[in-house]
C-alpha cells in the first residue's frame, strides 16, 4: 500500500499528470452540470452524436493541414447541436432519429476522410486515440489546459447565471414560454454550451465514451436525490471524484484513461442504485 502511495506521489510531480488532473476535474464538472439537463430533457444520446460530429470535424481538419483543429471542430459541433435541439420539435424528424442519423453519418464520414486523406503513417493510432481517448488527457499542452480553464469558466458561469431559466426550460418548455421565458434563445445557448463541453470532453475519454461522462453522474444522482439542485450538486461531486479516481487508477495500473473513468462511473452508478433501493425509492 505504501508502495502505491509512494508511486502516486512520484507521478504527481510530473507536469503532464498535473495538467490531466486539472483538465479532468474541469471537464467532469462541466459535463455533469449539463448531464442533468440533458438526461431530464431526454437527450442523453446527444453527447454521443455530437462527439461523432467533433470526430468528423477533426478528420476534416487533417487534409486542410490545420495546426489547430479546435475552431473548426467547435464550429461544426455547435452547428449540429443547434440542428439537433431544433429537430426535437419537428414531428417529421423526431429527436432520437436525428441524433442517430447525425451520429453514424459523422462517424462514417470522418473515418472515410481520414482514410482518403491520410497525412501521417500512424492513421489507425490517431483514430483509436480519438475514439477511445487512451492517453490524450496525459499529453495535454499548457495552452490546451488554459483553453480548457477558459471554456469551463464560460460553461459554469452560464449555468450559474441562467440556473432558473434552464430549470424552467428543462421541466416544461410550454409553461416557460407562457411565462415569458425566451425558450428558443435558451435552447440555442444550451446547444452551444453542450457542443463546447463535448469538444472538451473528447480529450478526456475519447468520442465513443463521452455519453458515459454526461449520463452516468446524473443517473447516479437521480437514484438518490429528488430535487433539481440536489441532483445537480451530487452529479458534480460524483463526476469530479469519479474522474480523479479514474485517472489515478489509470496511471497507477497502466490501464487506458478513458475506459477506466467510465468503469469507475459505472461502479458508482451501481452503488447509488443500491443506496437508492435501500432508501426505498
Amino acid at each position: 500500500m505504501s508502495e502505491i502511495i509512494k508511486n502516486l506521489l512520484d507521478y504527481l510531480q510530473f507536469p503532464f499528470v498535473q495538467y490531466a488532473l486539472i483538465a479532468g476535474t474541469l471537464i467532469a464538472l462541466c459535463s455533469s452540470l449539463l448531464g442533468v439537463t440533458l438526461v431530464l430533457k431526454r437527450y442523453s444520446l446527444i453527447g454521443d452524436g455530437l462527439s461523432h460530429v467533433a470526430f468528423c470535424a477533426m478528420a476534416c481538419a487533417l487534409p486542410l493541414h490545420m495546426t489547430n483543429d479546435m475552431p473548426l471542430t467547435l464550429l461544426l459541433t455547435i452547428a449540429c447541436a443547434v440542428l439537433l435541439l431544433r429537430s426535437g420539435r419537428n414531428t417529421r424528424f423526431t429527436g432520437d432519429a436525428a441524433v442517430a442519423m447525425i451520429s453514424v453519418a459523422s462517424l462514417a464520414l470522418g473515418y472515410l476522410i481520414i482514410n482518403l486523406c491520410a497525412s501521417s503513417a500512424n492513421v489507425s493510432a490517431d483514430v483509436c486515440s480519438t475514439l477511445f481517448g487512451s492517453t490524450s488527457i496525459l499529453t495535454l499542452t499548457p495552452v490546451k489546459v488554459w483553453l480548457c480553464v477558459a471554456l469551463s469558466v464560460v460553461v459554469v458561469t452560464f449555468f450559474v447565471l441562467f440556473y432558473h431559466k434552464i430549470f424552467a426550460v428543462v421541466f416544461d418548455e410550454e409553461f416557460a414560454r407562457a411565462t415569458g421565458v425566451r425558450v428558443e434563445m435558451y435552447n440555442l445557448l444550451l446547444a452551444i454550451v453542450i457542443a463546447v463541453v463535448i469538444v472538451l470532453a473528447m480529450n478526456l475519454v475519447g468520442s465513443l465514451l463521452i455519453s458515459a461522462l454526461v449520463v452516468f453522474p446524473a443517473l447516479s444522482a437521480l437514484r438518490v436525490y429528488k430535487s433539481f439542485l440536489s441532483v445537480t450538486i451530487c452529479s458534480v461531486v460524483v463526476s469530479v471524484l469519479g474522474t480523479l479516481l479514474g485517472i489515478i487508477i489509470s496511471i497507477l495500473s497502466g490501464t487506458p484513461v478513458g475506459v477506466t473513468i467510465v468503469a469507475v462511473d459505472l461502479a458508482v452508478f451501481i452503488l447509488f442504485c443500491i443506496i437508492g433501493a435501500c432508501k426505498g425509492k
Binding site: Y11, F14, P15, F16, V17, T135, L138, T139, S250, I251, G254, T255, P256, V257
Partner: peptide
Amino acid sequence: TMVYSEINF
C-alpha cells in the same frame, strides 16, 4: 500509461 505519456512529454 505513464511511460507512454512521459515519452510524449
